[in-house]
Each structure stands twice: as structure tokens, then as C-alpha cells.
């Protein structure tokens, strides 16, 4: 177990593919910066891989003070055995107080294994992180400057705030897309620390036989306008109307889980508890009832328009503009109005 070290830094585990840093990792660096400033400590970014030269610069521009580079040919592919060994090694050496991972396939695989080895607590899928205090009801003792790990639980029906105060470090995985992307500051200065990796072939426990890595083709998170469709659209053909509207607005198309399950659109378009979280300037919900599992993925949108034939649909509870009507008629009118204004 790592000692409670209140002066420890705030760390981010950085995921990279080739020479590109995953967006989630940069978002976490942005959040880590806020947390570290509040605590008066530094931000550390840990990069593990075989071909990572140059990534430190970008991480510093995004807000890191220190970048720990763990480079070795054996680290060319992510594996829980080798990566957890390197990560625990470096964590034990520097005693960070907070460690953040993206709630990605890799983060979810690695973070619990690291937490178990460090004997640390880990909260999953956080949607917000804050610094605050906690008073233990039984002892009356107050713990200041601890990490409040805010995450949905019970299928999104409850928001829980998780803390740990007596076992260190404080670890969390964070949902993709919920933290803001930090602005690049090319004049920021930071320190790069080469960490000597001590690995042998035996540390690679599994053999990767074959894999398919697909580029994420839709940029739901990065788009200012999202036009999302639900089961109410009724067919793949009719989904085309949504694409037309999205094109007219320069936006992208999203969907609910049933729309994906029904084959109207591919899975990478799914928004909600099991899909992506978005917060565009404008969200247009079409033929969507507004189940909580969907709402959690979009309710931070600045403006929400809902189009539904059912005046009592739950989506209207969080909408700014309520249009009770059939999308087959409403969407063409919207496209027409947008085109008219554009000219």
C-alpha cells in the first residue's frame, strides 16, 4: 500500500495509439490541472509504450508539469501484465495522491489490476471530479482536500460520490468525453522524466493472435450539433432524413440503443449510459422517448429540441423546445427553414 501522501501529485495514465494521444487522456490532463491547482501540487502524465518520443511536448502544452516516459520495445502492445508492472513500479517510486484513467477498454482493464496491487480504492466511470472534504459520521473526524469521485450508479438512477481517505492513492476511471478538452498553450514549460523500465519477455503473459482496430469514424463528442434518432424513426431508410438535417446544420447523427439494436445505424453512434456522452451546443432528439439511460448521455447539451408524437414523452422534461408532431413532417420544415436563413 502506498503511504498517504497529501503532497503527492495528480497523475494521468496516458493512452496513445501510434504517435497520437487519445482524446480522453488529454481531457484528463485538463481535469488533473484543475485538481492539482486546487491542491497546490503538480500534474504528472505517465506514458507507456515503445514508440512514444515526442508525446511529452503535447502533454506539457495541455497542462502537465512532469511527463514520465516509460519506453521499451516490449511495450509495443498494451498488455495488462507488462503495463501494470511498469505502472505500479513508477507509482511506488513517486507516491502520487491521485491517479486518473480513462474508462476505455484499456483503462478498465488496467486500472483495477493496478488498484488491487497497490491496495488502493478505485471508483469506476466517474462523470465529475472535485476536491472537497468529508466528515465521518461515526468518529466526527473531517478529512480535507480529498478527491470527490462522482459517478452514476444503479443504471444511472443514482449519482454517488465516492471517496477514500485512509488508503492511498485515490484512483478513478473517468468516462470518455465528460471532461473538457484543455486548450493548447505552446509556451508552457514542463519536465520530461525518462523512467527506466525493467521488463523481460516473461512479463508478456498473453499472446495476441490477431486484432482488428477500427478508426472511430464518427466524432460525436467533437461536434457542435447532434441530431439523434430513436426507435420512433422506424426504419433505416427514414433515418436518412436525420442525416439530411445533420448535413444542413453541419452536425453529426446520434442514436439511442434501440435504434442501434434495430439496425438503423451502427453502434458507434450510440449515445447514453452505455454509449458516448455528448454536450453539443444543439441536440435534436427525434423519436426518442427520453429514458434515463439515454438522458445521462446528453443532458448537458446547451440547447435541446425534442420532436415526438407523444406529448407526455419524458424527453420533453429536459427539452428547451418541445415540438409535438411527426418527424416526417417536422424535419423537412426544419431543413427548409435552415436553408432559407442560410441564403
Amino acid at each position: 500500500m502506498v503511504d498517504v501522501n497529501k503532497k503527492g501529485d495528480v497523475w494521468v495514465f496516458v493512452e496513445s495509439l501510434g504517435s497520437k494521444i487519445e482524446d480522453t487522456s488529454l481531457e484528463l490532463v485538463g481535469k488533473a490541472r484543475e485538481l492539482a491547482d486546487e491542491l497546490g501540487v503538480k500534474v504528472g502524465a505517465v506514458v507507456i509504450g515503445s514508440d512514444i518520443a515526442g508525446l511529452d511536448e503535447r502533454l506539457i502544452c495541455c497542462g502537465s508539469d512532469k511527463v514520465y516516459m516509460c519506453q521499451d520495445p516490449l511495450l509495443s502492445h498494451y498488455q495488462v501484465s507488462s503495463y501494470s508492472k511498469v505502472f505500479c513500479d513508477i507509482a511506488n517510486k513517486y507516491n502520487p495522491s491521485i491517479i486518473l484513467f480513462g474508462a476505455t477498454s484499456v483503462g478498465r482493464d488496467l486500472a483495477p489490476r493496478v488498484a488491487a496491487r497497490l491496495g488502493a480504492g478505485l471508483s469506476a466511470d466517474c462523470t465529475d471530479l472535485q476536491i472537497g472534504s468529508h466528515t465521518d459520521k461515526a468518529t466526527g473526524k473531517t478529512y480535507d482536500d480529498i478527491l470527490l469521485q462522482i459517478c452514476p450508479a444503479f443504471g444511472g438512477n443514482v449519482i454517488a460520490t465516492i471517496i477514500n481517505y485512509d488508503k492511498w492513492p485515490q484512483m478513478a476511471t473517468v468516462r470518455e468525453g465528460v471532461m473538457k478538452m484543455p486548450e493548447l498553450d505552446r509556451n508552457r514549460k514542463g519536465e520530461t522524466i525518462e523512467h527506466k523500465v525493467d521488463l523481460s519477455k516473461e512479463d508478456l503473459v498473453v499472446e495476441i493472435l490477431d486484432e482488428l482496430v477500427t478508426e472511430k469514424t464518427v466524432d460525436l463528442k467533437g461536434s457542435d450539433v447532434v441530431v439523434a434518432g430513436g426507435a420512433g424513426i422506424g426504419s433505416k431508410e427514414k433515418f436518412k432524413l436525420l442525416w439530411d438535417l445533420a448535413n444542413a446544420l453541419g452536425g453529426v447523427v446520434g442514436a439511442t440503443r434501440p435504434a442501434v439494436d434495430l439496425g438503423y445505424i451502427s453502434e458507434e453512434h450510440m449515445i447514453g449510459a452505455t454509449g458516448v456522452t455528448v454536450r453539443p451546443s444543439l441536440y435534436i432528439a427525434v423519436g426518442i422517448s427520453g429514458a434515463l439511460q439515454h438522458q445521462t448521455g446528453m443532458w448537458d447539451s446547451k440547447k435541446i429540441i425534442a420532436i415526438n408524437t407523444d406529448p407526455d414523452a419524458a424527453i420533453f422534461d429536459i427539452a428547451h423546445y418541445k415540438i409535438v408532431g411527426d418527424f416526417n413532417e417536422v424535419i423537412p420544415m426544419m431543413i427548409k427553414a435552415i436553408k432559407a436563413k442560410a441564403n
Binding site: I159, T161, Q295, D317, A319, K322
Partner: peptide, 20 residues
């Protein structure tokens, strides 16, 4: 190591709705 600081019911904010 982890404890619950608090839990909240998810309350859906009633925003100002404009009916169009």
C-alpha cells in the same frame, strides 16, 4: 478503501420549455 460520501437521486431538472 472506498467509502460513500453521499448519494443523490437523479432529479431531472425542469428547464423552461418552449412549445413550438
Amino acid at each position: 478503501p472506498t467509502k460513500i460520501n453521499r448519494t443523490q437521486k437523479v432529479i431531472l431538472e425542469a428547464k423552461e420549455v418552449k412549445e413550438i
